[in-house]
């Protein structure tokens, strides 16, 4: 077959910073983040899209980085947990609401929550049901679920107030 390649040269953005990377086409975004860019905040729990630990934001949408192949990153904007400022309402809410126990699901949860927060019209009253649905793809075995939902709720309220 013509035109195929085993190697790709990628130009993409991670946490607002332009990146250029030459890598094998079969590598996943999760591997690239952790191994090539040394951004180990994004975690692996299964590598087959069954747990949500590897959630990042790609062009504004939350995705499982273990399922995204390198060439699919061309021209994209990626946000990982490392791209979140320390004073982000979600970070402060997670810390303050005791939404973190072992912390392993936390980066993925915060990314899923950020994606929800960014897409949600802050003028609406946020229903707990919506938050749970938005985070239904992120498992937590420590089951900080209700505190995570409270944290996201608190961040939504803060976003509403700041408008």
């Amino acid at each position: 077959m013509r035109d195929g390649s085993a190697i790709v040269v990628l130009n993409f953005q991670v946490n607002g910073r332009k990146r250029r990377l030459k890598t094998y086409v079969w590598r996943t975004l999760l591997e690239i983040l952790r191994e090539d860019l040394h951004l180990t905040g994004t975690k692996h729990g299964c590598e087959t899209g069954e747990c949500g630990a590897c959630t990042v934001i790609l062009n504004g949408k939350n995705v499982y980085s273990c399922l995204v192949l390198a060439p699919q990153l061309a021209g994209t904007k990626i946000t990982t947990i490392e791209g979140m400022p320390a004073k982000h309402p979600l970070i402060e809410a997670f810390v303050g609401s005791a939404a973190i126990q072992c912390g392993y699901c936390t980066p993925g949860m915060i990314m899923a929550a950020k994606s929800y927060l960014d897409e949600t019209d802050a003028g609406k009253q946020t229903k707990a049901r919506e938050i749970k649905h938005a985070l239904s793809g992120n498992l937590c075995r420590c089951a900080s679920y209700s505190k995570i939902a409270s944290a996201v709720q608190a961040a939504c309220r803060r976003k509403q107030k700041n408008r």
Partner: peptide
């Protein structure tokens, strides 16, 4: 109290190192 856990911020920012994060 309900003081935030001392390790919470590091975990929330993705800075806590788990064993597979070590290189």
């Amino acid at each position: 109290s309900s003081a935030p856990k001392i390790d919470a911020l590091a975990k929330a920012r993705g800075n806590a190192k788990y064993t597979d994060d070590l290189e």
